[in-house]
Design a protein around this nucleic acid. Structure first.
Length: 441
RNA sequence: CGGAGCAUAGCGCAGCCUGGUAGCGCAUCUGCUUUGGGAGCAGAGGGUCGCAGGUUCGAAUCCUGCUGCUCCGACCA
């Protein structure tokens, strides 16, 4: 993409409402624009990151055996009356009347709808296990939205719902998601720690929050320091192997880790002092096993091998991609701007033409742009006629992981400069070697 | 939902108290000079001063109502 043809509204000054660093940087780098309290438009740069985050989530959900569908944001109130949550949910639920005075709501979650769908079609244990997920906009009318897309009213959520014949099957389903989540966050360059959690209004008896550590995190968390050194499960983990997955689960839950609500001072004190970590955390995922809480009111049953009818055992599993984007910035930035992990960077490589209009520099940039694009990289080519300093500042602000600086000084020696955003390391390199060099990482 | 505040150009702000032709910085456009870490000079464009009433010869400014937004607290992917 040529920057001169792109839509990247960079702000030099920060809008006053932005309190936390991720909100400030998302506004400054032209990723989002606020349209109302807690409601945001995703501008092209932000949309690119959000899309990449969703794709990683999607790949790992699919790998674990979950199946994607798409349910609508508006739902009929009657569906929620079946579970009793239409009255329970309170003012967080956005309620609407259509032209026929029918009660409609903008979905804050989808347990009811997915249970209705499964109830309609799934009649036999042979269709199980089943895990259906979608990535869709949710609305929760928060008392006080804040911190940009971190706590917005409209937000994107990946929500998965598992259906099994019995508690043992549901436990396997829970562990599949547990492992998929470990992999998902690791691929985004995040160290997410699973912590014992409250089940809250969703109900149930087994639940974990996935927390990443960041000094600006909302909740206080306590855990064993060894979590930071643990290796996530590999890509070829066997999701059919119930015992193997339970082993991974046991390993990742063997050490102490809890949010402040579930904190056990005595257990924490038992950890050797050097390994005790008390920090701030950001919740980026939450998984629940809740048994027959919804299948019972909905009458969602299948016939088992014994010929009898069995209520489905369910779990639900959420990740907020829009919040995740903000969380990644909280966890990875410096004074100059965002530092994106390669996997989610809006563009992997930036080409900075330090002297637009100089024919040799233009030609070198054009050639590099063509070569990198052909090699499959997402490239942002800054071909504007801004000064070099402006281009450096822009590339660092929007967090391009690799930056190729092309100017007359370097080209005089047959070189361009390759800069790594994360540590500022630079190396002089021949333009023809850039593609090969990036493969090394 | 309790408490506090704000609303004037894309962004940040002044002007309001004491009514009298709507301003500053950044950004944008034009020209010249610059050109490897957010350039300089000169010029230009851009506003129903959140909305609706009222007071007044005259309202950004005073009064009333409304709307939107932000911050602090309790709740939340």
């Amino acid at each position: 993409m040529r920057l001169s043809r792109y839509f990247l509204p960079i702000l030099r000054e920060v809008p006053k409402e932005a309190e936390i660093v991720s909100h400030r940087l998302m506004l400054r780098s032209g990723m989002i624009r606020q349209e109302a309290a807690g409601i945001y438009a995703w501008l092209p740069l932000g949309h690119r990151v959000l899309t990449k985050v969703c794709n990683i989530i999607r790949e790992e959900q699919n790998r674990s055996g979950a199946v994607e569908l798409l349910m609508p944001p508006p739902q009929q109130a009657d569906l929620w009356r079946e579970s009793g949550r239409y009255d329970d949910y309170g003012k967080e639920m956005l309620r609407i009347k259509d032209r026929h005075e029918r009660d409609i709501l903008y979905g804050p979650t989808n347990e009811e709808m997915i249970t209705e769908i499964v109830r309609a079609y799934v009649k036999s244990y042979k269709a199980l296990p089943l895990n259906l997920y979608h990535i869709q906009w949710k609305f929760r009318d928060e008392l006080r939205p804040r911190f940009g897309v971190y706590r917005s009213r409209e937000f994107l959520m990946k929500d998965a719902y598992s259906f099994d014949l019995d508690a043992a099957g549901a436990r396997h389903a829970y562990n599949r998601m547990f492992v998929a989540y470990l992999r998902t966050f690791a691929r985004m360059g995040l160290k997410a720690i699973p912590m014992v959690a409250d089940t809250g209004p969703i109900g149930g008896n087994l639940s974990h929050e996935f927390i990443i550590l960041a000094s600006t995190g909302e909740s206080e968390v306590f855990c064993h320091g060894d979590y930071l050194g643990m290796t996530p499960p590999p890509a070829d983990v066997n999701f059919e192997d119930a015992a193997g997955l339970q082993g991974v689960f046991d390993q990742w839950t063997s050490l102490y880790a809890a949010t402040s609500e579930k904190h056990d001072q005595a257990a924490f004190a038992a950890i050797p002092e050097a390994s005790r970590m008390a920090a701030r955390g950001i919740e980026v995922g939450h998984i629940f096993y809740f048994g027959t809480k919804y299948s019972e009111p909905f009458g969602a049953k299948v016939q088992g091998p014994d010929g009898a009818e069995h209520l489905l055992h369910m779990g639900s599993y959420g990740i907020g991609p829009s919040r995740l984007v903000a969380a990644m910035i909280e966890a990875s930035h410096d004074e100059a701007g965002i530092i994106w992990p390669d996997a989610v960077a809006p563009f992997q490589v930036g080409i900075l033409n330090l002297k637009s209009g100089d024919s040799a520099t233009d030609a070198a940039c054009d050639a590099l742009y063509a070569a990198l694009t052909k090699a499959g990289y997402d490239v942002l080519y800054d071909d504007t006629d801004e000064r070099a300093g402006v281009k450096f500042a822009t590339a660092d602000l929007i967090g391009l992981p690799w930056q190729v600086l092309v100017g007359p000084k370097g080209l005089a020696g047959g070189k361009v400069e390759l800069k790594r955003r994360i540590d500022g390391a630079r190396e002089l390199i021949a333009p023809a070697d850039v593609v090969e060099r990036l493969k090394v990482g």
